[in-house]
Design a protein around this nucleic acid. Structure first.
Length: 411
RNA sequence: GGAGGGGUGCCCGAGUGGUUAAAGGGAGCAGACUGUAAAUCUGCCGGCGAAUGCCUACAGAGGUUCAAAUCCUCUCUCCUCCA
């Protein structure tokens, strides 16, 4: 364990949004060093979707830092809470998930989370372990500790209440369940996004009721999605998944709006704040081209999730496609069986749809008319073009800038 | 239990008998430009078809009408308020 209190605190504080309560934190860190007893740091993830994205990594990185300092990382898979769905920041009740979905999500979650965490040092537990066996009596006891007024202090509940949007009783139970998790594992620290603030504080309160030492709540900033507006989330479709191929990550990072780039540097990379400030300054003074900075960002992100080589390769592919407007080496193939085609002719429109480049013939026709289709880099303008199968073997059809298909004819 | 308000294309949302494949916005796709899959601008954006065109579509099922997303009946479903 890292023995220097100041060093520990510096690492812990880095990039946090808020710490409740900082003095207490310093106190327990100090004690843990003195007694050589690592802190239990809790992070709960609800497997409501199968993929972990960069937004999750903000908080996962923090947990990793705790691990590296020698503390105990306890990852709680919220398989039970996922059934309700965290109402945080939501304006409507979530749909319920089936047990099977939750299970399979949980599996990919763990696999992906270990891209960030040290698998050997992570304790993983499912909260169904303890939540499932609670009796109604226990739940009554838990709920008796809180009031409706207290619940309505939470912003999203308050808004919904005021605007007459329904709040299911079950949703009130969510923060209580999460708080109970803290009791079950006797958490010293709990991590979460800023939207988790209320839930984390509930943990503190409930722990006090159960005569435990209240946990320290550390909140991390919420990462905005690739659209630059909403928070990153699967349901908004504005996310960059940690399991996506490097090329895809590179492209998506390049596609974020310039003005949110610095946030990404801050929240998902471990560059020190000096360096980030310099990048910000240089972009502002036009000494640094934003696209160069974004490249750097993309490479750092890929390197963290994969390897430096993957990052460089992704960059090369990107340049090939967008700078030189070329065709990448690896192109998905589409095989045509010559026998199945009469008189060895096929219309371009049909071929586009068959090969999956377009969803329908109508779409294909439109794209051709708009100049969005190329064969071996030559633009095609005729929507009624008939292709002779003998001529198109090994040729690459391209839709837009970045969708390719190599045609292979076979007997 | 009572009263009332909704369900429209991927999403949001307008439309209350006919130029309605359905305004507008968002998302998406393409083109131009560029420093990038940024921003901006332009176009497209149900399916089939070479095409005049045809088919499918406004929760579902019937009905009225020359004509219905729009009117009527029933069904399903969501929500709000009162109790």
């Amino acid at each position: 364990m890292e023995k220097n209190l100041k060093k520990q605190m510096d690492v812990i504080m880095l990039g946090t949004e808020d710490i409740l309560i900082e003095e207490e934190l310093e106190c327990i860190v100090k004690k843990s060093i003195e007694e050589d007893k690592p802190l239990k740091v809790k992070l709960g993830l609800d497997p409501t979707s199968p993929d972990i994205h960069l937004g999750h990594t903000v908080v996962l990185n923090k947990l990793r830092q705790f691990q590296d300092l020698g503390h105990r990382a306890i990852l709680i898979i919220g398989d039970y809470t996922a059934r309700i769905g965290d109402p945080s920041g939501r304006s409507i009740l979530r749909p319920e998930l089936s047990a099977e979905d939750i299970d399979s999500n949980a599996r990919t979650y763990m696999k992906q989370a270990f891209k960030i965490l040290d698998p050997g040092k992570t304790e993983v537990v499912k909260n169904s372990n303890w939540l499932k066996s609670l009796r109604f009596e226990d739940i009554l006891n838990l709920t008796s500790k809180f009031t409706v007024a207290r619940m309505l202090e939470r912003d999203d509940f308050k808004k919904r209440f005021k605007s007459n949007t329904p709040i299911a009783i079950m949703e009130f139970l969510y923060p209580i369940m999460q708080a109970y998790d803290s009791i079950a594992i006797e958490a010293d620290v709990e991590l979460g996004g800023t939207d988790q603030r209320f839930n984390l504080l509930m943990g503190r309160e409930l722990q006090k009721e159960f005569s435990q030492k209240p946990q320290i709540a550390i909140t991390m900033p919420i990462l905005v999605g690739t659209d630059g507006i909403e928070k990153m989330s699967k349901s908004f479709g504005n996310y960059i998944g940690v399991d996506e191929p490097p090329q895809e990550i590179f492209g998506k990072v390049m596609s974020i709006q310039d003005n949110i780039m610095i946030d990404y540097f801050r929240f998902v990379t471990t560059l020190d704040s000096e360096e980030i400030r310099e990048i910000e300054y240089n972009i502002k003074k036009e000494k640094l081209n934003p696209s160069i900075a974004k490249r750097k960002l993309a490479k750092i992100i890929i390197e963290n999730l994969y390897t430096i080589n993957d990052a460089l390769e992704a960059e090369e592919d990107f340049d090939l496609i967008f700078k030189k407007k070329g065709i990448p080496d690896k192109v998905e193939e589409y095989i045509i069986n010559l026998k199945s085609i009469k008189n060895k002719k096929i219309s371009l429109v049909q071929l586009l749809t068959d090969s999956g480049l377009t969803k329908s013939n109508s779409e294909a026709r439109r794209l051709v008319a708009q100049g969005g289709i190329k064969i071996n880099d030559r633009k095609i303008n005729d929507p009624n073009l008939e292709l002779n199968l003998n001529d198109i073997n090994e040729k690459v059809i391209q839709r837009g800038k970045r969708h390719f298909r190599k045609i292979i004819t076979k007997n």
